[in-house]
Design a protein around this nucleic acid. Sequence first.
DNA 1: CACAGTCTGGACCTGCTGGTCTATTTTAGT
DNA 2: ACTAAAATAGACCAGCAGGTCCAGACTGTG
Lengths: 198, 198
Amino acid sequence: MPKALTAKGTATRQRIIDGAAAEIHDRGVLATTLDDVCRRTATSKGQLFHYFPDGREELLLAVAEREAERVLEDQQPHLGQLTTWSAWESWRDAVVLRYQRQGMNCPLGVLITELGRSTPAAQLVTARLIERWEHQLLVGIREMQRHGHVAEGLDAKRTAAAILAAVQGGVTILMSTGSSAHLEAALDTSLLFLRLAH
Amino acid sequence: MPKALTAKGTATRQRIIDGAAAEIHDRGVLATTLDDVCRRTATSKGQLFHYFPDGREELLLAVAEREAERVLEDQQPHLGQLTTWSAWESWRDAVVLRYQRQGMNCPLGVLITELGRSTPAAQLVTARLIERWEHQLLVGIREMQRHGHVAEGLDAKRTAAAILAAVQGGVTILMSTGSSAHLEAALDTSLLFLRLAH
DNA sequence: CACAGTCTGGACCTGCTGGTCTATTTTAGT
DNA sequence: ACTAAAATAGACCAGCAGGTCCAGACTGTG
């Protein structure tokens, strides 16, 4: 990587990341080659290794970070303000919609499994995503407790972890079957649980 | 594949599948090459393609089927008799233990994501596993309802789907972080939910 | 024993893909 | 405008992994 990126440079770098992400969405991580990315982004091998000296691995990591960012963005503004039942409902719908749109390929998941084994940096991406996601759920639950909508006695931390797991599992199942039924069941049951704990 | 397998033949075929599964457990699907499998199982390329004419894909599918079978086996006998609270607790422990042992690599998951894109046969393996797993949960919940331990009004089908998703998500998170905290939270919260619905 | 089909071994081929290298053009700062 | 650094292009390389092939050793059945 050059010492300083010019405006043109950063633009190209970003174009490569975006193109790689798109290619991965379309055809999967495994099937995506560096040449594919070059073709799609109208760049050359030279540029690719100019901006990502560590090659494929570094590029994939950059894509993973981008994807992780999106996961949370796509749940906003709902996830950030889980203060009423209707906010939780909206969030639920947003999650279902987001993953139905994404369809049967989970770029992030495969990215992590391919990278994770070798790079600790990749594991960090997942860990941070989980932590942030869970934290927002936790805040939401605490908020509901503060407003008296959910029982004070409920273990908010554990519940947040469980809801996150349920969503994650619903998504995983959606990936392999194409059906969002489990994701919806997971979300609906989670909300029902919160309501029951009263 | 030959028309008829002799006893020796089936033994070799099985040895290849077992060896491939072991190799995948140790080093991951992506890093496992056909030569690795041959070396480990003391077989030759000739044999490998003799028993799996479609090569890597066919072998991987066979391994996936084997793994799927194990997932359910490892939860028995608990999963098959979820008729009391203590049975549910035992099941909970068995699941946690099984996946803690398995550690951070999910052969089945990666197998499916690598195969799923191309082969519908791979999707079938997952679909069947999910269906059978969920069915046993469903039976368990209905049983609890019949005995008056869980409210009749609870949507058993949806709850079974949600619990399965929660477990699945807990496992997924365990894979990428190495911590079973989410899996345990998911299971504990699921059981708490059943208890609350009374 | 014969012989047809199965089993085994391993050399070999080939396509692909990540990665290197060098030459040329463009940009930014003085 | 000059120059140093950055950006771009794309030919080229090397290794590897999946897959092919054929020759030879077993096996079991009439």
